[in-house]
């Protein structure tokens, strides 16, 4: 079910892949409880619930961004910021016994999607750095030399394109592919709190902006070489989502 979630940087397919990665690493107890809440046998089906709610509540579309302050630390308390939303959703799930069923379902779905959102470098905004919002740069396919073959690409579209080319994979197959080399880093990626995760991805954003920045002339190979960062971010999102859920639904 390909959602038309074009607006968020990881697109529907990216979120489904992250949910698929997390599915592989849930404990038995967590699986039982999560799948009973979702009334499904995996998390992939509900990986795009938040984007489907955008028409109903406008503020929901802001949840995908995580803003860091000038020196890359996540200190915001703005309620619609991605990190704050995750913390609130985790709170609701922790004392799920005395919460309404629909609220528990909603916060579980937001957790699944927004953890993936803050791990996309296209969604991290840094104060004082306008480039992190969005900017255009020219990409060149390396074949024809004329000017008109330049591809006008955007910062968020670049992170968007990495998942678009694997649309023909199924989420489970894409997850299996990512885990061939990134599974052995699971223990290292799992650590930290949502704020630390946002800062971690913020570091990648700062350094990527030294290579790709407004009006930069970039060849396709440079963009290809940075797909490695996108793979790592998706794997981190999957492992951290699984770790967070295991922690919440612990006995």
């Amino acid at each position: 079910m390909l959602m038309a979630g074009e607006a968020c940087a990881f697109r529907g397919f990216g979120h489904q892949t992250i949910a698929a990665i997390a599915d592989n690493h849930l404990t038995e107890n967590t699986k039982r409880e999560v799948y009973s809440i979702l009334k499904a046998d995996n998390m992939v089906k509900h990986a795009n619930w938040v984007t489907s709610q955008r028409s109903r509540a406008k503020r929901v579309s802001e949840w995908q961004y995580a803003t860091l302050d000038a020196n890359g630390k996540s200190t915001t308390t703005y309620e619609n910021d991605g990190v704050v939303v995750i913390e609130k959703a985790a709170e609701v799930l922790r004392n799920r016994k005395n919460e309404s069923d629909s609220l528990v379902f909603a916060s579980l779905c937001t957790l699944i999607e927004i953890v993936g959102d803050i791990h996309c470098p296209g969604n991290i905004h840094i104060e004082g750095n306008e480039a992190t919002k969005n900017f255009a740069f020219t990409r060149w396919n390396g074949r024809k030399v004329e000017e008109k073959n330049r591809l006008k690409s955007k910062w968020r579209e670049m992170w968007h394109d990495y998942t678009k080319t694997h649309d023909v994979f199924t989420p489970q197959y894409y997850a299996e592919d990512l885990e061939i080399i990134l599974l052995k880093k699971k223990a290292e990626y799992e650590k930290g709190t949502p704020r630390f995760w946002a800062e971690n991805v913020g570091e990648d954003v700062v350094w990527c902006l030294k290579v790709i920045y407004p009006e930069a002339e970039v060849t396709n190979e440079t963009v290809y070489r940075y797909e490695d960062i996108n793979n790592r971010c998706m794997a981190k999102a999957g492992y951290r989502l699984a770790a967070l859920l295991n922690n919440i639904f612990k006995q």
């Binding site: 390396g142 030399v145 030294k210 970039v218 060849t219």
Partner: peptide, 21 residues
């Protein structure tokens, strides 16, 4: 040369990864 002249132009802003490679 033609390949690199397509990126390196007067007053172009070239990405540093291309510059290193």
């Amino acid at each position: 040369a033609a390949r690199y002249l397509a990126i390196y132009k007067p007053n172009a802003v070239v990405s540093c990864l291309d510059h290193k490679y």
